[in-house]
């Protein structure tokens, strides 16, 4: 089922999707909000069979990242050509943020790129990083949307400007078909395999993600490794150690652009909503602490995990490539 804003029916991205899904039912709407923001939606049930909504984004194409999100001291921005994700990760903040699990794809990529160009002009001479994959997965929908190919063509050759494609997807075909971009980081979100199997519903297994990482690295792409959120469980040290070893086995450390990690944290209202969606899941049965409206494992566990990860990752990569994400 595809809902589309009538205004963008003739847009090339819409036409591409029409060709790819000739048997889908197409239902016209005025604006995506009339469907996406409706009251009394049930995120969990909707996630079983979400609809695709094709829309045009009109403003706020590029936004500054929340503090604590980026790497180092660069100027960091994010943009979201989609809302929501194909995957159904239990810890995902999107389930607490949106009332709808439907996918919104903003087809007017060109307006995102125009807005990014304006930011580059505004911050001329400064190093900028643009993050994709904050409100969605950057690549999971790529076969249908063709987003990555257009984004890479836009960013190709821009100096002092980096693009990060954050993903759990193994849909890397569009990347492997072209020469790697020196200013693009393909950043994979990862957890120990057993944890991912339990929490990352519908996402590719960790083995397949690691395999995709190695294919991209072998092809010359810069890789980001994102261990965010860190999940606490009884044998977490062994699990994370084994995960790092699996990833680094046969991977040239030179290909790693950066590694970041961050503790499991929720704004209080998001935690409540996520827990109400998965009341019987162990993730939401841990005695979390609440400080200043943020629900977390608490300082003691966070510090333990931070210290261990930093020390463990130092075995594989230099310290200046390791960052802690604190949002």
């Amino acid at each position: 089922m595809i809902f589309f804003e009538e205004e963008i029916y003739e847009h090339p991205t819409t036409a591409r999707i029409r060709r790819a899904l000739p048997k889908a039912s197409w239902v016209p709407i005025d604006r995506y909000q009339e469907l996406f923001n409706k009251r009394h939606q049930n995120f969990k049930l909707q996630k079983k069979n979400p609809a695709l909504i094709l829309a045009k984004k009109h403003d706020n194409f590029v936004l500054p990242v929340p503090s604590g999100f980026g790497m180092g001291s660069h100027k960091n921005f994010y943009f979201s050509h989609m809302y929501n994700c194909l995957y159904d990760c239990k810890y995902c903040f999107l389930q607490g943020m949106y009332s709808s699990a439907n996918f919104v794809l903003f087809v007017n990529f060109e307006d995102f790129f125009r807005s990014i160009s304006e930011k580059i002009k505004e911050y001329k001479g400064q190093s900028l990083t643009f993050f994709s994959g904050y409100d969605c997965d950057s690549l999971a929908f790529d076969k249908l949307s063709g987003f990555a190919d257009q984004a890479l063509s836009f960013f190709n050759g821009l100096s002092n400007v980096e693009l990060e494609l954050r993903t759990k997807s193994i849909a890397i075909g569009s990347l492997l078909q072209r020469e790697p971009l020196s200013n693009c980081i393909v950043a994979f979100s990862l957890s120990p395999a057993q944890i991912a199997k339990s929490l990352d519903s519908k996402a590719p297994s960790i083995n397949r993600r690691i395999s995709a990482i190695k294919q991209l690295a072998d092809a010359g792409w810069k890789i980001g490794l994102r261990f965010d959120p860190l999940i606490y469980t009884s044998d977490w040290k062994e699990l994370y150690s084994a995960l790092f070893a699996d990833i680094m086995n046969g991977l040239d450390p030179e290909r790693i652009h950066s590694i970041s990690y961050g503790p499991l944290r929720f704004p209080k209202t998001m935690y409540k909503k996520a827990a109400s969606l998965h009341p019987e899941h162990k993730l939401f049965a841990f005695p979390m602490e609440e400080t200043n409206g943020v629900v977390s494992y608490g300082a003691k566990i966070e510090t333990q995990m931070h210290d261990f990860l930093k020390s463990e990752l130092n075995n594989y990569i230099s310290e200046n490539k390791i960052f802690q994400c604190t949002i």
Partner: peptide, 27 residues
């Protein structure tokens, strides 16, 4: 019905999960 429109006002509703394996849908 995948979209229900009150013709007089134009108000639109989008009831239900799609039962597309069972029956076709229409506006």
């Amino acid at each position: 019905a995948n979209k229900v429109v009150l013709k007089e006002s134009g108000a639109a509703f989008f009831p239900g999960l799609r039962l597309s394996k069972q029956i076709p849908s229409a506006i």
